[in-house]
Every structure is written in C-alpha cells, then in structure tokens.
Write a protein that binds this DNA or RNA. Structure first.
Ligand SMILES: NC(=O)c1ccc[n+]([C@@H]2O[C@H](COP(=O)([O-])OP(=O)(O)OC[C@H]3O[C@@H](n4cnc5c(N)ncnc54)[C@H](O)[C@@H]3O)[C@@H](O)[C@H]2O)c1
Ligand SMILES: NC(=O)c1ccc[n+]([C@@H]2O[C@H](COP(=O)([O-])OP(=O)(O)OC[C@H]3O[C@@H](n4cnc5c(N)ncnc54)[C@H](O)[C@@H]3O)[C@@H](O)[C@H]2O)c1
Lengths: 213, 213
DNA sequence: ATACTTATGCGACATTAAGCACTATTTGTG
DNA sequence: CACAAATAGTGCTTAATGTCGCATAAGTAT
C-alpha cells in the first residue's frame, strides 16, 4: 500500500509522530505499539496503524514497532537523506532569539542552523549562537557554499516580499515565514507561515468556547 | 442556526477569517463576498458561507458581508467583550523578543501585552517594550491588579511545569506554551502549544512531497 | 417600475477521515 | 514446542467535512 497517496490528515500528523518517537528514543524506549502511542498522543490506535500503513508494513504483529527503525524511517520521510541546512533572514529580535536557540540542539542530526543574513551593518559580521551573520549581498554565494535548503524569514513585514525574492533567487525552495504578510512564490517554492497572533486568537477562542467566560 | 455546535474545522478557520477581515478593514474595504474571501484565503466559498451560517445570518443576499460588522462580530466571538490582558512568563531570548514586538501593535484593541515575569534579578525591574518585568513572586498580586487573562510561557523546558503551576494558581485560565514539553492542567485551563521545530518539520515534509527533491 | 445581476443560505450529495471489529501473525512463556 | 497473549494490518461502518445547485432576496441599471 505504499503508492504515494497520503491523506492530508495523515500528513499533518507526521511531525507529531516524529516528535514523539524522538522523545521516546531519548528516554531509552526500545519498542512501542499503536496502543502506547495512542495513549500518549490521544490519537485512535486504528488511525495510527492506518497512517503507518500508507508507508508500508512498518511493524511486526504481536510485537509492535521498533523505535529506532521508526525514527530512521520517519526522519527520511520528513527530511530526506541529507541534513537540511537552515538560514535566518533578518537577525533582529526574533531572528537572533532563534539563532541563540538553535532548535534547542534537538534536531541537529536532521536540521542545522548554519547562517544568519541581514542588511544592518551593526549585526553583520557578528556571531550569534554558533552562526555568523552575513550581508544579504552574500546570500547567493553562501547558500551555494553551505548548501542551504531552508530560510526562516524574520524581517519586518515591509521587507518580506523583497527578501522572499532574494531567497527564491538564491535557489532556496522552502521558507518559514514569521512576517504577518501573505507571500506567494513560483511553483516549487514551499512557504509555511507561522503567525503568533493567529495562535493567540486560537487560544482565546478555545477559552471562550470551553469556559463560556 | 446559532445553537453552539460549531464543527472543529470551522473553529480552526475562525482566526484565519478574523485576520483577513482586519487586513481588509485596514485597507479600507467596505464589503466582501464569500467569493472574494475564497479567492484570498483559498477556502471554498460554500465552506465559508456554511461556516458563517453557524453563527446566524451574517450576510445579505445579493450584497455580501459588511466588513465592519464582520470584524465586530468575529472579534466578540473570539475575544469576548473585554480586552484580553497577556503576560510573558520568562523574559529570555524569546520572551523579550515578544515583549518588544507587542503583537506588532495590531491586535491592541482586543489583546494587550501588559507585563513580564521572571526569576532572574538581572531582568526583573527592567522595562521592555512598554512592559515592566516583575518578580515571579508578584505574579498573584499583579495578575489580580492588572486583570491578566493569558500567559505566554517562554521559560526553559525544565521550569515549564513549575511555572505552569504558578500561572494556574494565580487564576489565569489560558496558556500559550513555547516550551517543548507536554503540559497538562486542571479542568478549565486551556493550553495551546506552539512548537517551532514541529513547524519546520512540517515545512520539510511538504517540500519533500511537493518537490520529490 | 422592470429586467437583470449578484450572492446568500440551505438542502442534498460527495468526499474524506475516523473508528470498529476481525484476521493473521509473531512473541514470549512455561 | 505448544499455546496464550499481544498487536499489526485492513475491509467495512459511521461520522465529519466539503461541495453543488438552486430558490430567494437584495442590489443595480435602464
Ligand atoms: N519579535 C517577535 O516576537 C515576533 C513575533 C511574531 C512575528 N514577528 C515578525 O517577525 C518579523 C521580525 O520581527 P522582529 O521583532 O525580530 O523585528 P526586528 O526589526 O527586530 O528585526 C528585523 C531584522 O530584519 C532586518 N532586515 C530588514 N530588511 C531586511 C532585508 N530586506 N533583508 C534582510 N534583513 C532585513 C533588520 O535589519 C532587522 O535586523 C516581523 O515581521 C514581525 O512581524 C516577530
Ligand atoms: N529562543 C527561541 O527562539 C525559541 C524558539 C522556540 C521555542 N523556544 C522555547 O522557549 C523557551 C525559552 O527559550 P529562550 O531561548 O527564551 O530561553 P532563555 O533561557 O533565554 O529564557 C528563559 C527565561 O526564563 C526565565 N525563567 C527560568 N525559570 C523560570 C521560572 N520558573 N519562572 C519564571 N521565569 C523563569 C529565565 O530567567 C530566563 O530569563 C524554551 O523552553 C525554549 O525551548 C525558544
């Protein structure tokens, strides 16, 4: 059943599964069952088995799933075979927080923060976290040199469109956009928006619904 | 049809609609139709009409929807009648970025960042953005004084559980959690997790699917 | 006024996702 | 080695979500 028609709902759960597998692996767990995953993630066990079945037969009847195999398999599904190299575009408040954070060190075997870029002379040349902040002029060149695949866009909304074009031209195909503007790119550019005010509104609405209040 | 049985899928779209209405209102738009919303948000126009219909008859046939009414109506649905007061718990890299950002000033008629809290003497007493950073000891007292409804939790993962308990005890019912740990609270505490590494994985997976790559 | 256009709200239908329940298989144990 | 326990994988049922089509009301132009 591994012909590439993976339902949207399954796609959405992939990162959630992966996060769980990693945390279990770190905790020393060797095997899991659809039941044990279900208990932790609050997803029906049948849904979990069905989700996995789209990728082939990942488990063994009567035993469950081996955690190391799951991590390896999902890692390749999500990231591919090579480590993804990530750059921060716009090293201001949020960009520098992300550089210092460096994903909490957690994801470093599949994703790596490798550079920052800005137009402000006062940050260019600095090293934040363990990344150098380069001038935007150097984007093309450094992207090739360091094999950067993904850009995290943390510039003011006014500059977002301009920065997006630079990113696209440098040959990067994935953008995680924190600026509160709608960006569209050429066919083949994948843009993922993260909007913190949207998340807060979502929280407010859930509070309203669950508590009247 | 305004008996409170709003489908999950509709709930998820509420903040997206609201964001769009606000942006249109700011741009001076006076009316919209399900068709025009559909074109911008890439949600089927029938889905939009159906979503709105759960809240009653918001539009007029042959005319569409009045933007100001929509903004007012959705604002009350999402936030309620009073402005939501928000505090940042843990004023480190991310917490201080959020304080300086202050939601880009956008949401200030429905949400307001009013204070920061920390345990580190070197930040306590400072003013960041336009908020004072208080000692965590003062949480109970300031929450009452300023009528704080929501906490944004940006402490290290090791302190998250402890901070959650303090927040809960102070009488706050909504937490937006940035720490990469699973928090659970009493009945009536609404927790919304934001995990940036999860979002990045989601981006990677979409790149993989859409580009083979 | 009258005809024509626009666009809602809603019932009916279609698609997608979730969950049940059964089968087949492996595990682990005595 | 035999057998009970565990658990994956899946056909089928049910629930949730999305879409179509149209009657109807409102707006617009002549
Ligand atoms: N700070 C937050 O907590 C926060 C939260 C959510 C969203 N955001 C969004 O993230 C973005 C950044 O926010 P911030 O508070 O870090 O802003 P900031 O002003 O502190 O930082 C922006 C940085 O981008 C740089 N920049 C400007 N134009 C550029 C360009 N064309 N190319 C490269 N770099 C450029 C600036 O020099 C600056 O260093 C904004 O769009 C904001 O709406 C911020
Ligand atoms: N920095 C980022 O870009 C980023 C991105 C995603 C998630 N996160 C998560 O957000 C959290 C904060 O990250 P950070 O980089 O800002 O860390 P940080 O260490 O810079 O800041 C944490 C702050 O919390 C304070 N603190 C510690 N214990 C506390 C307590 N019990 N009560 C109140 N304050 C307390 C510390 O004094 C410090 O000021 C972490 O859990 C991290 O995993 C950070």
């Amino acid at each position: 059943m591994s012909d590439r028609i993976i339902p949207e709902a399954t796609k959405r759960r992939m990162p959630i599964y992966y996060k769980y597998f990693k945390s279990q692996q770190e905790a020393g767990t060797k095997r899991v069952s659809s039941k044990s995953i279900s208990d932790s993630l609050d997803i029906d066990s049948a849904t979990i088995r069905r989700d996995f079945s789209y990728f082939g037969e990942l488990g063994r009847k009567g035993y469950g799933y081996n955690i190391d195999s799951l991590v390896d398999f999902f890692s390749e599904q999500i990231f591919g075979k090579t480590v993804k190299k990530v750059a921060i575009i716009g090293v201001g408040n949020l960009g520098s927080a992300l550089l210092r954070y460096n994903f909490g060190g957690n994801v470093s075997n599949s994703m790596q923060l490798v550079a920052g870029f800005d137009i402000d002379e006062t940050v260019i040349g600095k090293t934040i976290g363990n990344c150098v902040v380069y001038n935007m002029d150097e984007l093309n060149h450094i992207v090739k040199e360091k094999n950067i695949n993904i850009a995290i866009l943390t510039v003011p909304k006014e500059s977002a469109e301009e920065a997006k074009i630079a990113i696209e031209n440098a040959g990067i195909h994935g953008i995680m956009n924190f600026a509160p503007v709608k960006l569209t790119g050429h066919e083949g550019l994948v843009i993922h928006d993260v909007d913190i005010t949207l998340e807060l509104q979502s929280l407010c609405f859930n509070m309203k619904l669950s508590r009247g209040e």
